[in-house]
């Protein structure tokens, strides 16, 4: 029966390629401290977001376009770093961070508000005209987000899964530079997304370091490659525009994003979380 031999070979082929089994050595209670520390990280990021958004929206409201433009990308970073948690509140995610194509009439849609609506005004029209109410709403939404998350018991699977979710997000909707299409400040977002993902990984690293050293090293190497690649585009306190990204580096980022998404997708299982 040739079938039997074939199956034997097949099983071998798969075992060689399969990720490790979920670690039996991680107790759910081991995950408590990483989740607690992540909550503190999220809280700190949201404190920063509220502070930065205040300065940003103040500039928008007084019509100081240059200052507002300058503050736009750095303000977003606190949001992007904790996006897996921030977007648990879909109403706020829509009002804070939706893109024009999420709306039927795109840029002209009255429902198009939040960061990207202001970005559109500042960078495409070079004007803060009519952005006052949008700025007020953004400030209110960000403050609301902060208080909602303060009272949120973080679902551990969202925390651990967030590391991969951030990478999936970048892979599916960001690597092409479509997020900040008016300001072209995508590299800031990338850095924040990667930082947020790596933070989660760093927090759970002690739980898998011993049993899964090769995995940890591989993920670290991917993050390092990303950091080194993005570092080439640092300028001042931020980054160059997305256009500066060479095709080669975009590929390097894309491959590492995919690899991280693939590798980090096993993290929940490795920690015994469904």
């Amino acid at each position: 029966m040739p079938k039997l031999t074939l199956r034997g070979a097949a099983a071998l082929a798969f075992l060689a390629a399969a990720p490790g089994l979920a670690s039996a050595n991680v107790s759910p209670l081991d995950i408590v401290q990483p989740v607690a520390d992540y909550k503190i990280y999220v809280s700190e990021k949201l404190d920063q977001l509220v502070t930065d958004t205040k300065a940003f929206t103040d500039a928008v409201k007084v019509g100081d376009v240059e200052t507002a433009k300058h503050l736009f990308p750095s303000t977003r970073m606190s949001y992007e770093a904790v996006e897996p948690i921030a977007e648990l509140f879909s109403d706020l995610d829509a009002s804070i961070d939706s893109r024009a194509d999420d709306h039927e009439k795109a840029e002209e849609d009255p429902g198009f508000i939040g960061f990207h609506r202001i970005e559109y005004g500042l960078f495409s029209k070079n004007s803060a005209e009519g952005l006052g109410p949008v700025a007020d709403k953004l400030m209110a939404d960000v403050t609301d987000l902060q208080s909602r998350i303060e009272n949120l018991v973080l679902p551990p699977e969202k925390v651990v899964g967030g590391a991969a979710a951030l990478m999936e997000e970048v892979a599916a909707t960001k690597i092409s530079g479509e997020e900040n299409r008016y300001s072209r400040t995508d590299l800031w977002d990338f850095q924040a997304n990667f930082d947020g993902s790596r933070k989660i990984f760093d927090l759970v690293r002690p739980l898998i370091q011993t049993d899964d050293a090769a995995f940890v090293a591989k993920v670290d190497a991917s993050f390092d490659t990303v950091d080194e690649t993005l570092a080439k585009y640092r300028e001042g306190d931020g980054f160059k525009l997305y256009e500066a990204l060479t095709d080669d580096d975009r590929r390097v980022l894309a491959a590492n994003v995919n690899t991280l998404a693939e590798d980090l997708s096993t993290l929940r299982g490795k920690l015994g979380l469904d």
Binding site: P28, I31, Q33, A36, K39, I40, D274
Partner: peptide, 18 residues
Amino acid sequence: PALTAFIGPLAEYQVFVG
């Protein structure tokens, strides 16, 4: 409930205690 159901609450309590 599974022990995992307590991770979030325990973590939140750790945050509170901290």
